[in-house]
């Protein structure tokens, strides 16, 4: 099938996603990822810590672990859809970062992303595909933050590339 042989123009892909996101907005809410990830973190922490988790107020006052939280299933769906796409286009194979420095950068980057999402209450997806199109003030604050952060990150990345 042609769809699985050629790379799709990202403008077309994102235009289709935007239209679907409008339907989501009407039914349950706009596309977001950070909220679902936070709930997964809470569920994982509950599985490990059990009732001890209730001693951390965040998990009783802000995100009470709930497997019925719909945002979790957007992330699981993305994982599934990407897996299907990769298998059907014969692009699925295990890839590992080759150098220790890559593992270190990914570790620091992951920690910053997780910490940043919770501090902001939003992720990049809610910023660009939810808050800003709703013209929420938080979207503009978040966009200015992410552009400044991406610039600083890019300068660090450039220095690393230049050795």
């Amino acid at each position: 099938m042609e769809f699985f042989r050629k790379t799709l123009d990202p403008v077309i892909a994102l235009a289709v996603i935007a239209v679907l996101d409008i339907f989501m907005f009407l039914i349950i809410g706009a596309w977001t990822v950070g909220g679902g990830e936070t709930m997964m973190t809470g569920l994982a922490a509950q599985a490990i810590l059990g009732d001890e988790l209730q001693r951390i107020p965040f998990w009783t006052m802000v995100f009470k672990p709930d497997p019925g939280y719909w945002k979790i299933y957007i992330s699981l769906g993305m994982l599934f859809g990407a897996f299907v796409g990769a298998v059907l286009s014969k692009e699925f194979y295990l890839r590992y970062p080759r150098h220790l420095s890559e593992w270190v950068l990914i570790t620091i980057g992951g920690l910053l992303m997780g910490f940043g999402i919770r501090l902001a209450f939003v992720c990049n997806v809610s910023t660009f595909f939810g808050l800003t199109p709703e013209m929420n003030l938080g979207g503009y604050l978040a966009i200015s933050g992410i552009i400044a952060g991406a610039w600083v990150g890019s300068m660090i990345y450039k220095r690393i590339l230049e050795g």
Partner: peptide, 15 residues
């Protein structure tokens, strides 16, 4: 929102 997404922006480029 600004500070959180700043940290996120640095993190996503590094990751």
């Amino acid at each position: 929102q600004m500070v959180g997404l700043f940290l996120f922006g640095v993190g996503m480029v590094l990751a």
